[in-house]
Each structure stands twice: as structure tokens, then as C-alpha cells.
């Protein structure tokens, strides 16, 4: 618990990170409680299309007369959920690959890292598009597709951390007391290697949200769910006559991604061992 206090002290001292955390908390609250408090179906035609914001509906209506605020509120849930789940999945796969490759080295390392590089050298958005296009576009496949294009960077980072730790004396000490490899990897090296991985995967949430928005902009997302990217995609054709229709969800994406990045940077400063003491 003492370690957590030190971490929290460092994190709070960083104003940008603290600000980002507040904004992020607000967006999380919006995603969690918004749909309950503002119970309007985002697909229902509630009025005349192209209504201005603050007219009859707080943010107006879109090309099909759908309430934009309802879309923002429901879209927050989808965007954040896909972003977080994809990052978690990518982190688990990436850390597993990286840890095994880094700890054992040699041929195992070669095989795992060549696999990783195979994924790295394909443009990630194109790969995500292809994956979603092959399978049915729904929440699960979109999440999986984003995770598939995101894990290689985590794997490389984790591998580097494990390589730097595997030859340290405490690891040799663990082997000298007869500890099995899995225990050394999971319980001994992992806690030491985790801080930079946490930072990268928190920043990855922002990238994942952007990728999801890009996919839904292209219409490659779950047709039964509203997301911010989908709203921008719908508003694209009327950008010149009704710019706010694209600008509102766009601003939401911008604010969310910015807040996550600020929090990630704050985590980095608070967890980075080079800045300790």
C-alpha cells in the first residue's frame, strides 16, 4: 500500500495528468450512466433532420432525424468498451509472447519475434479493415481485429524488459533455490517489468478508440450499435452544410484520446524507474 501512496503522490503532482484523469472520469461516467439518464434510442427518428443544436434537442438531429446527443451518449459506451477490451486483449497476448521470447531467448525467441514482426510490417489499419471485412462486422470481431493489430508493440516492449531482467542476479538466485521457470516469469520478473507495459497499454486504449472510429467511419462496425466514428461517417456527406454533425462526435474522440494520453504520460512519469527518488 505504501508503494501505491508514492505512486499516487507522484501522479497527482502532474497537473496535466490529473486534469486528464478528471476528464477521463467524466467520459467514463457519461458512458456508464448517460444511456440510463438520457434514455433516447439513438436509432429512432425523433424529429425533422438537420435540426440545429439547442433548438429542440440539445445537440440537434442528424441527416435521418436522429438525436445526436443520444448517439454521443450511447457511442461513448461502445467506443470506450472496444478500446479498453482490445487493449487488454492485446496486452495479454503481447506480454505472453514477449515474456516467453525474452526469458528463454534462442530459437524460441526467434520464432516468436519473427511472428511478431510479420504482424508489425503490415500496415495496421489495413490489416484491421481486412480482418473485419472477412468476418462479420460486430463488436467482437472489431475488438479482436484491433487487438490483433495492437499486440506486437507490447510484445517487443515486454521482450526487452524480460531480456534486461533475465540475467540479473535475483533471477539467478531464484533459479539457484530451485524455482520453476513459470514462477520466475510470472511472479519474479513480471512485477519488475510491468510499469512500462502498463504505460504503453494505457496509451494503446487511445489508439484503439481511433482505430475503431476509423473502422466505423468506413461502415465496418456493428450495424446495431452507434459509435462516434459511425456518426462522423454518416455526417461526412453533409460536411459543408451541417459541419457540427461531424464536429461533435469528432470533438468527443479528440477529448477522450487526449485525456487518455495525458493519463498515460502521467503514469509513465509516476512509474518510470529512471525518474525515481
Amino acid at each position: 500500500m505504501k508503494r501505491f501512496h508514492i505512486f499516487w503522490f507522484r501522479f497527482r503532482r502532474n497537473r496535466a495528468a490529473a486534469g486528464g484523469a478528471v476528464v477521463l472520469a467524466a467520459i467514463l461516467a457519461l458512458a456508464a450512466f448517460g444511456p440510463v439518464l438520457y434514455d433516447v434510442d439513438p436509432f429512432e427518428m425523433v424529429g425533422r433532420p438537420f435540426m440545429l443544436p439547442f433548438d429542440r434537442y440539445p445537440l440537434g438531429t442528424d441527416v435521418a432525424g436522429r438525436d445526436i446527443l443520444a448517439g454521443i451518449v450511447h457511442g461513448a459506451r461502445v467506443s470506450l468498451m472496444i478500446g479498453v477490451l482490445a487493449s487488454v486483449a492485446a496486452t495479454i497476448v503481447g506480454v505472453t509472447f514477449g515474456a516467453v521470447a525474452g526469458y528463454y531467448g534462442g530459437k524460441i525467441d526467434d520464432i516468436l519475434m519473427r511472428t511478431t514482426e510479420f504482424f508489425l510490417c503490415i500496415p495496421s489499419f489495413v490489416l484491421a479493415v481486412v480482418l473485419v471485412a472477412i468476418f462479420q462486422p460486430d463488436v467482437v470481431t472489431v475488438t479482436i481485429a484491433i487487438a490483433v493489430v495492437s499486440w506486437p508493440s507490447v510484445a517487443r516492449l515486454a521482450r526487452g524488459e524480460f531480456i534486461s531482467h533475465r540475467d540479473r542476479e535475483y533471477v539467478l538466485g531464484c533459479r539457484a533455490i530451485g524455482m520453476p521457470d513459470w514462477e520466475i516469469i510470472l511472479l519474479q520478473i513480471m512485477p519488475n517489468a510491468l510499469p512500462p507495459i502498463i504505460v504503453v497499454s494505457s496509451l494503446m486504449v487511445a489508439t484503439a478508440i481511433l482505430t475503431e472510429s476509423g473502422l466505423s467511419f468506413l461502415g465496418l462496425s456493428d450495424p446495431n450499435l452507434v459509435s462516434w466514428g459511425y456518426m462522423i461517417g454518416v455526417a461526412r456527406t453533409v460536411l459543408r452544410s451541417a459541419w457540427w454533425m461531424a464536429a461533435i462526435p469528432g470533438a468527443m474522440i479528440l477529448i477522450t484520446v487526449l485525456a487518455i494520453n495525458l493519463v498515460g504520460e502521467g503514469l509513465n512519469d509516476a512509474l518510470n524507474p529512471k525518474l525515481r527518488k
Binding site: E169, L172, A176, I177, G178, P191, N192
Partner: peptide
């Protein structure tokens, strides 16, 4: 079997006690 010998029948202490303990535990 050799893992059961390590630390049980044969123990080892290292040169640098700064490095030989895991800092997080």
C-alpha cells in the same frame, strides 16, 4: 530432480547482495 537439489541440498550466495534480491518483494 535437480530443481529439488537447488536451494535444498546445495545453496548459493552471490557476489552482489544489492542485485540478488528481488526489489519488489
Amino acid at each position: 530432480e535437480i530443481r529439488h537439489i537447488r536451494g535444498f541440498k546445495i545453496a548459493m550466495i552471490f557476489q552482489d547482495p544489492m542485485m540478488a534480491l528481488n526489489p519488489v518483494y
